Amino acid sequence: MKITKKVIQFPASGHKVAAVLNIPEEAEGKKNPALVCVHPGSSCKEQTAGIYAEKMAENGYVTIVFDASCQGESEGEPRFAEIPAQRTEDIHCAVDYLTTLDLIDKDRIGVLGVCAGGGYAVNAAMSDHRIKAVGTVVGANIGRVQRESCENIAMTMEAAGKQRTAEINGAEPMIVGWIPGSKEELEKSGITDIDIVEAVDYYTTPRGKSPNSPNKLLFSSMNAMLSFDAFHLAEVLLTQPLQIIVGDKQGAFGSYRDGQELYKRAASQKKDILVLEGVSHYDLYDQPEPVAKAVAKLTSFYQENL
């Protein structure tokens, strides 16, 4: 199915968020189901979430994919901040925007998140039951990921707080990298974990590199991530139908473990987890065969639940 792409903005927390609205050619003149597509940490709308947004639009859903506040082409300060509460609020505001469109059925809005975007999608759905169905692809709880990768949480929290104080008093922002900035940096680091290796291949090479995803993180936002649990109260508040998709090749980002945990904890009466054999975290970002399998599963899931 042919789709029309519209570059738009929507308001969030007093600033504007940059987004792309994907509209199937058959959507005009009727009320349609819609999906909010949420990108991973460090990512942008042109990367993996954009791939899923386009493919789901080709299957009949109006989709919106956007750059997180303070990142990419979106407004918001401080730049390169990763604030889970704001990331979740961005999703609420994307839903707000969709409800203003004549071509959207307000009772048929779902969310689809990739990696940390999956965790944020879950978190947003728990506090926003306008979201009627939740899908995650290699969904990860970014708080857990950061806590497990942090050598000393207490010291990092202290340092991040001091840096925030310094910046509000005029110091230059402290910007760090999410991952090694090149394959050469990766080799020097000695890191061999599959998720880190494939992250470098995805984000720093022509495979997935984008100017709106510059591998920059405001260090002072570490305190917000380290204290965040994307799945908090899932056993009480996550009641919408839930589709989880993961690969069984496990790495440091732990999306397989998070998928299993979310499946067990979710209060959803309708929930399913699809484990793709021989598939890694980053295979499900952009590799044709695993992505096609994920899209097929998601399409049937949303058809049943939106």
Rank of each mutant, 00 (worst) to 15 (best):
N123K: 12
N123R: 13
N123L: 01
A124R: 02
A125V: 13
A125M: 04
A125E: 09
M126N: 07
M126V: 06
S127F: 13
S127P: 03
D128K: 05
D128W: 08
D128H: 05
H129V: 03
H129C: 10
R130N: 10
I131T: 07
I131K: 07
I131N: 10
K132N: 10
K132D: 08
A133E: 08
V134S: 02
V134G: 00
G135I: 05
G135F: 01
G135T: 01
G135A: 11
T136R: 00
V137H: 02
V138I: 12
V138L: 02
V138R: 01
G139M: 01
A140L: 02
A140F: 00
N141S: 06
N141K: 07
N141H: 03
N141L: 14
N141Q: 08
I142R: 05
I142S: 10
I142W: 10
R144H: 10
R144C: 05
R144V: 10
R144E: 12
R144T: 13
V145E: 07
V145T: 15
V145W: 08
Q146R: 08
Q146Y: 11
R147F: 06
R147S: 09
S149T: 07
S149C: 08
C150S: 15
C150V: 13
C150L: 03
C150P: 01
E151N: 12
E151H: 14
E151P: 07
N152A: 15
I153E: 05
A154N: 05
A154R: 05
A154H: 06
A154C: 01
M155W: 03
M155E: 15
T156R: 08
T156Y: 02
M157A: 08
M157F: 03
M157V: 09
M157Q: 09
E158G: 07
